[in-house]
Design a protein around this nucleic acid. Sequence first.
DNA 1: GGTCTGACTTAGAGATGTCATAGCCAGGCA
DNA 2: TGCCTGGCTATGACATCTCTAAGTCAGACC
Lengths: 166, 166
Amino acid sequence: MTTTIQMTGVLDPRDDWTADHCPMAEALDVVRTRSAFLILREAFYGATRFEEFAERTELSEPVTAARLQELTAEGILEREPYREPGQRTRQAYRLTDKGSELLPVLVALMQWGDRWQQDSGARVELRHRGCGAAVTAQLRCADDHPVPADELELAARSRRRRSARS
Amino acid sequence: MTTTIQMTGVLDPRDDWTADHCPMAEALDVVRTRSAFLILREAFYGATRFEEFAERTELSEPVTAARLQELTAEGILEREPYREPGQRTRQAYRLTDKGSELLPVLVALMQWGDRWQQDSGARVELRHRGCGAAVTAQLRCADDHPVPADELELAARSRRRRSARS
DNA sequence: GGTCTGACTTAGAGATGTCATAGCCAGGCA
DNA sequence: TGCCTGGCTATGACATCTCTAAGTCAGACC
């Protein structure tokens, strides 16, 4: 099989370490539920108001409210008061930078579902505005090579460098 | 905000359609649980035997067994009998093509967790074997342009073309 | 034949996610 | 003053996920 990821250095063999703080598992803790994904989907589709989220996701109001609060508390969405004429002040929910960076996850899920799930009679696709070509989530290295699974290597991080957070 | 996806054609305005068969939601139905993701992670890390999955994911045996069965039924993993000398025949679980194509989802989750989750003192990173550069999941169009969120466009699919499935 | 081991399965319980229904509350409007 | 609406909150029920503990079962080995 060529679809497994090679281990190198101290990570080889796999039995000698545990994935204690697996970043994937921690990301999952935040966006694990179906409702969180649906709300994120609608946020990327431009929803900002409570009612828009509830209607478009077809989630119940309690779940919508709970998830909007949690995602806000996590810093994935942020609240912003707004006011339409003749209306009282309300809250809009918008994606933060942290939230926006979940886009590749959603796109990757979307493209997999579209390709492999029989029932998805999906009628939509993502395109690059301007050039019009279809968009996919791809693995690339910093030197811009496309990286197939069998050229992937899992290594101990040489240095811990983290860019600023908002 | 520039992080929302533009709607075009019949998809604009968003209120006029429902995401009935959202491929993302259908993908989620298959790999919704934490246990499914952890098992997939270990499959990509090269695990094939029941015991490897159970130990490395730290899931209980019943959950490991249930998930391996479900993922096999979904065609994401496949069973293959194998036999070591002096042992009886056992089943190995391997990623199918369908399963392998979930890699961008996991990589995207991993990179987001690594960047944004405080607690992930992650010590690992993905590299391109050979060139050694760090690997990320990126949005690219078919013409190979990197696509930022604000250049993404959601459109009705012009034609339904699907490649063969295994 | 009996024991042992790896790979599960069964049973029961607690936590979490989701739902439907109903209620609350602020503020606009009559 | 009182009604109405949008945006939530509260309650209780049900489903799902996960756990621990215990049991099953096939085949290797003695």
